[in-house]
């Protein structure tokens, strides 16, 4: 899985050399509708999903992103699934893309029914005006997509916030609304990490800071997998995720985090 994602990342980086296909008079792009395509998406679609049909009904999947965010380096993103995670039919994979980022595949989430409800929240870096897309693959093979066009810029080269480097890897789990036994329970997960993109300039040395970002997060409850996430630097610094899980009795919620320099970190939360 990781290898295939990395291939796509490499292809995305290479695509920077290609000219933008559509531009209106004055330089503004014309494909600014939330559901519009883009040359980058057409290439990614072919590589990730081949010729498979992709539905866009909002009843199955909804992506909520503001048109403009406060900062391009921290664009709030919410994914809402219209489908409860039941064994007979569930979202088994979620892919999050930022069409025009240097590395457009922001996250690939491998899901189980243990999450109860495939709703996620996180924050993304967005480097220039771009579509953000969430694509859900259901357990029956169907693909569903929701997309939003956002107007922000500079997210991948924003001045880094490096005041927490001594806490790098610290992984925190919280249940902000309390525990709901046998029901989807929201969890906040945050990893203290600069998630350096490689495009940020050190203001003192005037050298680019090498990339160093959270590569994967694996969440489990007891001995059961909740979900695995393959990530990239399009996730904002201090990667934060809100997700659900269904506790079926006391146990330990655990997040195993690995970064691009093979740093390994663990966060746990006892659920009573």
């Amino acid at each position: 899985m990781r290898r295939s994602v990395l291939k796509v990342l490499a292809a995305g980086a290479a695509s920077w050399a290609l000219p933008a296909a559509r531009a209106a008079v004055g330089g503004l792009p014309t494909n600014v509708g939330h559901a519009d395509s883009s040359p980058e998406w057409e290439r990614l679609r072919e590589k990730l999903f081949g010729g498979r049909p992709i539905e866009t009904a909002a009843s199955r999947l909804q992506l909520i992103v503001p048109l403009r965010a406060a900062y391009g380096a921290s664009v709030p993103v919410k994914i809402v699934s219209g489908l409860p995670q039941r064994p007979e039919l569930y979202v088994r994979r979620l892919t999050v893309l930022v069409d025009k980022n240097p590395s457009p595949v922001a996250a690939v989430l491998d899901l189980t029914t243990e999450i109860g409800q495939a709703d996620f929240e996180t924050r993304l870096r967005v480097d220039e005006y771009s579509h953000i897309r969430a694509i859900a693959e259901l357990s029956n093979g169907e693909l569903h997509m929701s997309s939003r066009y956002v107007k922000v810029s500079g997210g991948c080269s924003a001045p880094p916030n490096r005041d927490q480097l001594h806490n790098i890897g610290k992984t925190l789990l919280k249940v902000p609304e309390g525990v709901h036994m046998d029901a989807p329970t929201p969890v906040d997960l945050q990893v203290v990490h600069p998630n350096d993109t490689g495009f940020e300039l050190n203001q003192v040395t005037v050298m680019y800071i090498p990339p160093h970002f959270v590569r994967s997060i694996r969440v489990s409850y007891g001995d059961r997998k909740v979900f695995d996430a393959e990530l990239d630097f399009s996730i904002s610094e201090n990667p934060a995720w809100r997700f659900n899980f269904v506790p079926r009795g006391p146990g330990t919620l655990r997040a195993d985090v690995e970064d691009s320099k093979e740093g390994r970190y663990v966060g746990t939360l006892a659920i009573a």
Binding site: R68, A69, S153
Partner: peptide, 15 residues
């Protein structure tokens, strides 16, 4: 509404 940092994303008439 939440405004962006800077004004670079609304320096065209439509925006």
């Amino acid at each position: 509404m939440q405004m962006p940092a800077g004004t670079g994303t609304f320096q065209t008439v439509p925006e």
